[in-house]
Design a protein around this nucleic acid. Structure first.
Length: 846
DNA sequence: GGCGAGCGAATTTTT
DNA sequence: TTCGCTCGCC
């Protein structure tokens, strides 16, 4: 069965992220029914043995190791539904945590389709969403203003930059980026400035800045993402009544993607679960250590093992039955991941047949790779009527069979949106995009700016935030002179000085400091502040929509963009903001509902009883959910994304591109063992996205940072079992042999059995270049001349494989000089890139 | 205050 | 190569 994919429709569940409307049924106060035997329950129909076991586990800590495509989300949601239906828990008594809003939404949508339950009241959401909810309900206890604003990463960076300027920090020595990373890291480890061990001057300085940053945030009434978690962790840790209330309440805690939790998140869960306390709530953790690909941002796979140990987990269930892919694909994935040392151990299996072999294609360049991709995609889209002989229609016969038997071919009639082109890094998409664009194939790239991250939207939000919280200096600075109103850097500097000096040196917000300003600067600033203050008054009692419309008009934003040449899109987005607010309100039903909601929430001890205004709620929503990357879905388009972005998705056809050493695995990750293992897990994720057909592709040369780079093929290709692969282009040993781009794949391709076979060699470089409307011919040939000269002088060629006594086999990357001065840059897979003087080094051509 | 030259950096990313 | 940021000039 397919996955329910929720796209675009962000409706229905916003409330759960910021505004509680839980029912008051606490565990223990509800009925305590007897459980029907599991086989009677329609909920459980269609689950396999392991899935069913997981769903119906008793209320004890459990770890579900859920392989790719094993029905993880289904198990999680069915578990919740089962707990509810069997009366073991009331909707208010469970907590379900996900990493993304999308996952939370999907869970709620599915849950709703299983049970007639009001998911809006349930505590299902992201870590950040739930922490926000806790902090809003207990803002006084947590030491925050009720209307605290949330800084996203951009805001945080500008806040740090501002701080650095103010304290004359040398930004060369302490780049704001690095400080941001440092602060985030401390918070993730649960460390306040006073807790950080600093043994060197640099660290001491950073800690000092961390301290100052905290003070700044506190003064301004803003919290960053890390703070949301840490503050809520501390709230629970330091306030027993609050902690005990929630511990009593959340008898079941379910966590999705457990392998992605960081240290603080795990600690938070332990607190809520009452781990180590007299009674423990049932933590149901679902995850896959093989799909842990976020160590770089703090995820700790080790949490899985810690969880098993610390919670004395008795129930570990592996979901290894895969419902997605054919076995050639799964066997490849299994074989690859078996090269990792640190694993909990798991092997995917399928009842579908072998399916097609995994196709491997080597091209001469990234351009040729893109061109090949286009041709292949065209072939796949093509209607059956024009399909080449040997290509079968989509399988209707029983699936399976070896490579020899007719295989369920996906050779034709594949929807574009069922094809995904994956790459390791975003930079790789460019060439592919250009090629797709020129060939007129619709495509959609994931990544990039999201709706609420767009400059014009952030400007509008800044005005709105100032209405809610005039002390928000980040927002103040963002719009004080946007649209331009004659307030330059000098005025702002003066204002900042005044703010610092205010309150006997304790400092004040910029907004408050405006009074102290005089002269022309003072007049302009006063006018701005007055505008904000008037707007605040004018918007009293208005609906959210009216507030935003008023602000857009009076801020001058719309007017400003109207005068701009390319402002039309921005105005459109601003209009979209009104629409977003509108639907936000209509879905949340602000008003009666919110009152009731707050009342319910305040059942918690020490809860602070105000209702969040619709505007404040909307601003929170905007910060916690940045919105879709690209709104125009609905169109049938080829999907382009990084491997990271593909996690959790699946497609009939998957192209994994750029399988070259240095790219995938990425060179930056090669220095340490863990890095390489994470790259391998990344590759594992990529492979397991494919349902029916998988292509692995690599290019011998690639434009990177404006230079042509030579790569050898990824070690991952060599880690795949030969019998599941089909090398569509000849498999070279190493590299080098026959590096002559004269070969063309010519007109006769695409006629092989099983489809996609291709005659020989690589795409003709000039041909593919012309397809992009670029003429790189001259530069190609001139560099070729140089190459040839060097070849003659050294006896080596770029791309050639050579053998060195100490370093082993390597590939020639660069040649320089001639005669005794001749040297070569050689990439040795085991020893890295070396420069060798050819008069000294003994090299043998392989 | 706006614009253009010049410089440096350039995995992966959600909240 | 290309993007984003800073700096300096008009």
């Amino acid at each position: 069965m397919g996955w329910v994919r929720v796209t675009g429709a962000t409706v229905g569940c916003w409330l759960a992220f910021y505004n509680p409307s839980m029912s008051l049924d606490l565990p223990g106060t509800g009925p305590r029914p007897t459980f029907p035997s599991s086989s009677d329950m329609p909920l459980l129909a269609g689950l396999n043995t392991e899935q069913r076991a997981a769903v119906t586990l008793p209320a004890e800590p459990a770890l579900i190791l859920a392989g790719a495509g094993s029905g993880k989300t289904r198990v999680l949601t069915t578990r919740i539904a089962w707990l509810l239906q069997t009366g073991q828990i009331s909707p208010g008594g469970l907590l379900a945590v996900t990493f993304t809003n999308k996952a939370a939404r999907e869970m709620m949508t599915r849950l709703q389709s299983m049970l007639p339950v009001n998911v809006r009241g349930m505590w299902i959401g992201t870590f950040h969403g739930l922490c926000n909810r806790l902090l809003r309900a207990h803002h006084k206890t947590a030491g925050l203003p009720q209307t605290f604003q949330i800084l996203d990463t951009q805001d945080q960076q500008s806040a740090i930059k501002r701080l650095c300027k103010q304290f004359n920090v040398d930004e060369e020595r302490f780049p704001p980026k690095q400080l941001q990373w440092f602060i985030g890291g401390c918070k993730e480890d649960g460390l306040r400035p006073g807790d950080v061990q600093a043994h060197d001057p640099d660290t001491r300085k950073k800690v000092e800045l961390y301290q100052l940053y905290e003070e700044q945030c506190q003064r301004e009434g803003v919290v960053d993402f890390g703070e949301l978690l840490l503050r809520s962790y501390e709230l629970l840790r330091d306030h027993a009544p609050v902690r005990e209330h929630y511990q009593r309440r959340f008898r079941h805690i379910l966590i999705d993607e457990f392998q992605d939790t960081n240290k603080l998140q795990y600690a938070w869960i332990k607190l809520l679960a009452g781990q180590g306390a007299s009674h423990e709530n049932a933590v149901f953790a679902v995850g896959d250590d093989d799909q842990s690909i976020y160590a770089f941002r703090g995820a700790r796979v080790g949490n899985m093992a810690d969880f098993v140990r610390e919670f004395h987990v008795q129930h570990q269930i592996k979901l290894e039955q895969n419902y997605r892919s054919y076995s050639n694909i799964l066997d490849s994935a299994n074989a690859l991941i078996s090269h990792n040392k640190h694993r909990l151990g798991k092997n995917l299996r399928t009842e579908q047949g072998a399916g097609e072999p995994v196709r491997v294609v080597e091209s001469s360049s990234d351009f040729a790779e893109a061109q090949w991709l286009i041709d292949e995609i065209k072939q796949l889209i093509r209607d059956d009527s024009s399909a080449a002989p040997g290509r079968l229609k989509q399988a209707s016969a029983p699936l399976g069979g070896s490579e020899d038997t007719p295989v369920p071919s996906v050779g034709a009639n594949i929807a574009r949106k069922e094809m995904a082109v994956l790459y390791r890094s975003n930079a790789q998409s460019r060439v592919i995009e250009t090629a797709l664009f020129n060939s007129g194939i619709p495509y959609k790239v994931y990544g990039g700016l999201r709706f609420f991250e767009r400059a014009e939207i952030k400007h509008a939000l800044a005005y709105l935030r100032l209405l809610e919280n005039p002390n928000d200096d980040t927002s103040f600075l963002r719009v004080v002179n946007f649209p331009p109103r004659g307030i330059g850097a000098r005025s702002i500097e003066q204002l900042q000085d005044a703010a610092r000096a205010a309150n006997q040196g304790a400092g004040s917000s910029l907004h408050a400091a405006v009074n102290a300003m005089s002269g022309k600067a003072g007049a302009n600033l006063s006018a701005f502040v007055a505008k904000i203050d008037v707007l605040r008054e004018q918007t009293q009692g208005l609906t959210l929509r009216e507030i935003i419309e008023l602000v857009l008009e009076h801020s001058g934003l719309v007017e400003h963009y109207r005068a701009e040449r390319e402002g039309a899109d921005r105005i459109e987005n601003l209009e979209e903001l009104v629409t977003a607010a509108e639907s936000f309100v209509s879905i949340e039903g602000f008003g009666r509902d919110a009152e009731a909601t707050a009342a319910a929430e305040n059942a918690a001890p020490d809860a602070d009883g105000e209702v969040l205004s619709p505007l404040a709620a909307f601003l929170t929503h905007a910060a916690l959910e940045a919105g879709d990357n690209q709104a125009q879905d609905g169109q049938d388009a080829v999907q382009l994304m990084t491997v990271h972005a593909s996690k959790g998705l699946e497609f009939d056809v998957v192209f994994i591109t750029g399988l070259e050493e240095g790219l995938f695995p990425h060179e930056n990750s090669l220095s340490d063992f863990d890095g390489l293992e994470e790259e391998r897990r990344l590759m594992y994720v990529a492979i397991t996205r494919a349902r029916k057909r998988l292509y692995l592709s690599l290019a011998q040369t690639r434009m990177l940072h404006g230079q042509t780079r030579y790569h050898i093929r990824s070690r991952f290709l060599d880690e795949l079992p030969e019998e599941t692969l089909k090398w569509v282009t000849p498999r070279n040993q190493g590299f080098g042999s026959g590096f002559t781009p004269q070969n063309s794949y010519g007109p006769g391709r695409g006629n092989g059995a099983g489809g996609g076979a291709w005659n020989s060699g690589w795409a003709n470089a000039s041909r593919s270049d012309s397809a992009y409307g670029r003429d790189t011919g001259s530069s190609l040939s001139s560099s070729k001349v140089v190459e040839q000269a060097q070849e003659a002088a050294t006896g080596l060629r770029i791309g050639m494989s050579v053998f060195h006594n100490k370093f082993g086999e390597g590939k020639v990357l660069t040649l320089e000089g001639s005669g005794d001065d001749a040297r070569a840059q050689i990439n040795f897979p085991r020893h890295g890139v070396k420069w060798l003087a050819l008069s000294v080094a003994k090299l043998t051509v392989v």
